[in-house]
């Protein structure tokens, strides 16, 4: 297939995934902000939402202060922020439109409908409506994703689509960890109290793993287990290792179909086997923060390798 078409599919999926992630981060921040002030940390949840979204630089160029209004404006509706939910859906749709016939009509319609509805959303909606709106964004992403899974042929077009989602998802999970790693260090349990308990809860919410945690660990919330869930646990679909299993599988399918494997297959496998060989204790021994930094680097190297190998 055309490199441009593969690129468009890859980025369509990435941007839809990113929009979904932003909705979760903002939703979690709203819940934290609703707590009595004594449970809130020194840096507010709104500030942490801005850092997690990766839009900090642009954000503080426009606003002095991160609060509900400015975050809603910049991370959700702003067209100046290329990674706002609105920009994400704009870009996803523009990409999809340029390869319209490579998508099934169900997938296209799900995306096009989401785009149309988002454009008619009122940025000044009430807080309650805003919360419903964030749920709607998550639902729209589910519809697009579901349409693709249920209707697309299992060929290179589909694999590039899924590959984009897997890489973006890995990046998003890693960025949550990057911003909040200090809350997850084993020693933080001792110093923590109710505040940290809410924070851990918020992290679980950001990855929709609130209930999953109980099923997996059958334990009260412990920070190192939260870290384990997000990094090394294969049951958890947003964990780093799950994302890499997914990415590596798509890349292998592409390599087999094209009769050739290259740098991106090699990189994905290397990262996957590194993750598979680790236990969470090893991660803490190495330093959670360093581990995450390394992972973010590896992930962006894989993105570049995919780009060079297939998308140009």
């Amino acid at each position: 297939m055309l490199s441009r078409a593969a690129d468009a599919l890859f980025w369509t999926a990435r941007y839809v995934e990113r929009a979904d992630f932003l909705a979760r981060v903002i939703d979690a921040a709203s819940r934290m902000a609703a707590l009595p002030s004594q449970y809130q940390g020194s840096s507010t949840e709104w500030e942490s939402a801005v850092s997690t979204s990766g839009a900090g630089f642009g954000f503080y160029g426009v606003y002095g202060d991160a609060n509900e209004a400015t975050v809603r404006d910049y991370l959700v509706f702003s067209l100046d922020n290329p990674s706002s939910i609105r920009s994400c859906l704009n870009t996803a749709r523009a990409n999809a439109r340029s390869v319209r016939t490579a998508l099934t009509s169900e997938t296209w319609e799900a995306l096009n409908t989401a785009w149309n509805e988002l454009n008619s959303a009122d940025p000044a909606m009430s807080g309650e409506a805003f919360s419903r709106f964030l749920d709607w964004v998550k639902g729209a992403a589910l519809l697009i994703d579901g349409a693709a899974r249920r209707t697309m042929l299992r060929n290179d077009a589909y694999w590039f689509f899924r590959l984009g989602a897997a890489l973006e998802r890995a990046d998003n999970t890693a960025r949550i960890l990057d911003v909040k790693y200090h809350l997850l260090l084993p020693e933080s349990e001792a110093v923590g109290g109710s505040l940290d308990y809410f924070q851990w809860n918020a992290i679980l919410r950001e990855v929709s793993a609130h209930t999953a945690y109980r099923w997996v660990y059958r334990d009260t919330i412990r920070p190192w287990l939260v870290a384990d869930l997000l990094t090394l646990n294969r049951q958890m679909p947003r964990s780093l290792i799950s994302c890499y299993e997914d990415a590596s599988r798509r890349l292998d399918l592409l390599g087999d179909a094209y009769g050739r494997r290259g740098p991106s297959q090699k990189l994905a496998r290397a990262t996957l086997s590194k993750l598979a060989g680790l236990r969470i204790d090893d991660v803490f021994a190495q330093g959670l923060h360093e581990f995450i930094q390394q992972f973010l680097n590896d992930n962006s190297r894989l993105g570049a390798a995919i780009h060079d190998q297939y998308l140009t």
Binding site: M1, L2, A6, D156, F160, L254, Y258, T312
Partner: peptide, 11 residues
């Protein structure tokens, strides 16, 4: 390239 036309594909 060298008076021949190519398209950029994933292969």
């Amino acid at each position: 390239r060298d008076d021949k036309v190519f398209m950029r594909t994933t292969q």
